[in-house]
Amino acid sequence: MNIHTLQAKNLKAGYNKTVIIDGIDVTIPSNKISVIIGSNGCGKSTLLKNFARLIKPFDGEILLDGAGYDKMHSKDLAKIIGLLPQSPMVPESITVYDLVARGRYPYQKPFSQLTSEDQEAIEEAMEMMGVSKLRDQFVEELSGGQRQRVWIAMALAQQTDILFLDEPTTFLDISYQVQILELLKNLNEKKGTTIVMVLHDINLASRYADCLFAMKNGELIAAGSPEDILNEELMLRVFNLECILMKDPVSGSPFIVPKGRAHLRPESQDEGKKISQVV
């Protein structure tokens, strides 16, 4: 596993001339799991898409090992940086094996068959995601959690050192969410893959992230380990939400409990009044 440095310098980006991110500097920690959090429309996906080269920055630059993406051949870049989009498209009647095999595209030459190296990478990726037994099934017939594991396996077959995932748990129930994050953690520990993902569940983010990036209105509000940055104040600033900070009884990581007014117990009535004033 190679160590790569990936950073955004004074990045300005958005869609169709609408600026969403207006000049931020981010350095992705190598061989760690980073999670980007923030409210809807804060620019998390935009940032991810810039790093994954799906959109080009308006200004500023993204540097991989100190050089811009346009300096590199796109197939070579595809061997270093991979992405699992939010809702990738499943081709009609494709089997698990064939879909995972598509991750080998950057390594293939025209007309050549899958090499033994390709086949090993595919087997290993399916094994890691626990989908080896599903290899001959049609992807469209799998459950949501299985399908997501197949997609991650495809991204793993690409054997990139850096992997971006755009909300990999969003459409999954809680047991699958935990399962996916466990698998990603395992991948990071075993292979040292740098993982960067957008997550909505703050407590799962807190548990699995080595580094959190908190964004609001296209700006980076805070960056650091969950222990260092995740607290009531950050939640108020980023999500405009009153919370109580607790400790995750399982992992010991910061645990956020939102307040809201409807369920306040008598002993927290005073807190409730404060909230109604804020709201």
């Binding site: 991979g82 992405l83 989009p85 595209y105």
Partner: peptide, 8 residues
């Protein structure tokens, strides 16, 4: 999206 990140 995937075609781009796969290098096409």
């Amino acid at each position: 999206e995937l075609p781009v990140t796969l290098g096409v």
